[in-house]
């Protein structure tokens, strides 16, 4: 379980240029839950994710993972960054990229190879082991990044606007891949996005953030049936209602009403 408690971040604290990015954030993510965090652009989403990931120390408050305070990158967490072209290592092949974080795990060579190939297969990249990232399309590169995170066998997968820079069709494919992989690996997912449709489509719950300095605007339950489908789920009237509800919550923070 992930618990975010009164998290606050002020950049350049104590100087004239101090900037309060995150004011006060609290929410929890249950085991095996998929939670999307949405907010207007500039709402400190990436700041929040970096604090959860232990890459950025908060100014106040804390993040707890299974009741343990996060002070550095936890072993049980893996990250997928937005910019796949800058987070994959161009001098390593696809296979080496996925295997790289596993080197200091106490796994045998055979086991590692098996795990890497198995994970690559599960993201649909069975034939691309020996390719370099720059030989692949954007969508495929992001699949490599997802495979790398999954092969790390985390309890929680953090994704920072992972599909923001791929085309619409690829994006839909990758969204379904995330749902599929979550079912297969039983991993908890925290997914940051600015796309409202995406957040409703994927989530069990949506955490809506206010504009900066960020607070939790509200947390919306998404009781849509699973498995979800790009066409069928999105034509449900409940989907449209939730989508509109989240939309209004982001646009007009004060006057949102509970959906009928």
């Amino acid at each position: 379980m992930l618990r975010v408690e009164n998290l606050r971040k002020v950049y350049q604290e104590g100087t004239k240029r101090a900037f309060e990015a995150v004011a006060d954030l609290s929410f929890t993510v249950k085991e095996r839950e998929l939670v999307c965090i949405v907010g207007p652009s500039g709402a400190g989403k990436t700041t929040l994710l970096k604090m959860i990931a232990g890459l950025l120390p908060p100014s106040a408050g804390a993040v707890y993972l299974d009741d343990e305070k996060v002070t550095g990158p936890p072993e049980k967490m893996a990250l997928v960054f937005q910019d796949y072209s800058r987070s994959l290592y161009p001098w390593m092949t696809v296979e080496q990229n996925v295997a790289f974080p596993l080197k200091h795990r106490k796994l045998g060579k055979v086991e590692t190879t098996e795990l890497v190939r198995d994970t690559l297969q599960s993201v649909g990249l069975a034939g691309a082991w020996s390719k370099y990232p720059w030989q692949l399309s954007g969508g495929m590169q992001q699949r490599v990044a997802i495979a790398r995170a999954l092969a790390y066998q985390p309890e929680i997968l953090l994704m920072d606007e992972p599909f923001a820079s791929v085309d619409a069709q690829t994006r839909a494919d990758l969204e379904d891949l995330v749902l599929q992989l979550r079912a297969r690996y039983g991993v908890t997912v925290v997914f940051v996005t600015h796309d409202i449709d995406e957040s409703v489509y994927l989530s069990d719950r949506v955490v809506v953030l206010s504009p900066s300095p960020t607070r939790v605007q509200e947390i919306v339950d998404v009781p849509l049936p699973r498995p979800r489908d790009q066409v069928e789920t999105k034509e449900l009237p409940e989907f449209a209602q939730l989508r509109a509800y989240v939309w209004r919550s982001i646009k007009r923070p004060e006057t949102s009403e509970v959906p009928a």
Binding site: A53, L55, P73, E75, A78, L79, R86, S87, F100, P101
Partner: peptide, 10 residues
């Protein structure tokens, strides 16, 4: 981003 990736994977 490359450094942070390495750090996050310990």
């Amino acid at each position: 981003a490359l450094r942070e990736t390495a750090r996050s994977f310990q």
